[in-house]
């Protein structure tokens, strides 16, 4: 009953915004539709794009989503596959940390977008350079969180393992990694978020499809309704991807995350 009440309150805020929006646009015409189209216009455009409409950017919404996913997931997977082991390695081996961490610490504060010029120079303006930019966005979060996760391993747990005669490898796999797993998953989620955020910027590079491209081109064509449809879609797909990872985390990270 109470839960119901809260949902109602949340829905109210949405409704109020939508109603005011509709009033200032289509009803009282206080704002020009070139600046801000009405919710009903956006809904119509959304339906049009979703059902395969290709005007004005040349692709349907589904095609754009798939094109964006291909770039975002491509860069994400490479970033995670390199970032997670790198983070674990730096946290676990003092020697490797001394070797790799100074370099990583310099790369870490550089925003993924700052790599755009170099990426174009090195990889051209095709798929590879876009993936490269996403890679940096995902790689940093994946590395940092895996590193921190391993570092949280409790000394006593390591001692328990050692007194039972555990090898270094056993300590890593039976003590440190289980400790770090929740943090590693958090890293995977943050990395996915960063990858998705960097997408629009990556698609500024001579794209012919994709959600970022759709937004860009619609600005030039004066179609704010398509821009907003694109923004909402980016938001929803991002939310969906995050939910998928959350479910995976629930399955793989077992309860009892609390540390004494």
């Amino acid at each position: 009953m109470k839960k119901h009440k809260y949902t109602v309150i949340s829905v109210c805020s949405f409704l109020i915004v939508l109603i005011i929006w509709q009033l200032v646009t289509d009803v009282f015409h206080l704002v020009s539709p070139i600046m801000l189209p009405s919710p009903t216009t956006i809904l119509k455009t959304f339906w049009y794009k979703l059902t395969g409409g290709t005007v004005p950017d040349g692709s349907s919404l589904i095609q754009n989503i798939l094109s964006s996913l291909k770039i975002a997931l491509g860069g994400y997977v490479v970033g995670v596959v390199i970032g997670v082991p790198l983070g674990i390695g730096m946290a676990w081996s003092r020697r490797f940390e001394l070797f790799a961490k100074p370099l990583f610490d310099i790369i870490r504060p550089v925003p993924a977008l700052a790599w755009i010029p170099l990426m174009i120079l090195w990889l051209g303006i095709g798929y590879a350079s876009k993936v490269g930019i996403i890679f940096f966005a995902a790689f940093i979060s994946a590395t940092v969180n895996s590193y921190t996760g391993i570092r949280q391993t409790s000394q006593v747990h390591l001692w328990v393992g050692k007194t039972f005669g555990a090898t270094n490898r056993q300590l890593l796999f039976k003590v440190a990694l289980p400790t770090a797993l929740p943090m590693i998953f958090t890293g995977l989620r943050l990395a996915l978020g960063s990858a998705w955020v960097a997408l629009v910027a990556a698609e500024m590079l001579a794209a012919t499809s994709g959600l970022g491209y759709m937004i860009q081109i619609s600005r030039l064509l004066g179609r704010p309704d398509v821009i907003i449809v694109g923004m909402i879609t980016i938001g929803f797909v991002g939310l969906l991807l995050n939910t998928v990872l959350e479910q995976l985390q629930k399955r793989f990270v077992r309860r009892g995350k609390k540390h004494d």
Binding site: W159, G161, T163, F164, K257, D260
Partner: peptide
């Protein structure tokens, strides 16, 4: 075997898995 002053059960393992920990190692 060493029993420490601090709580040293592994929070990610069940009771029986905790008891098995040393045997697994």
């Amino acid at each position: 075997a060493y029993i420490f002053q601090e709580y040293s059960t592994m929070p990610w393992l069940t009771v029986e898995e905790n008891v098995r920990f040393g045997l697994d190692i």
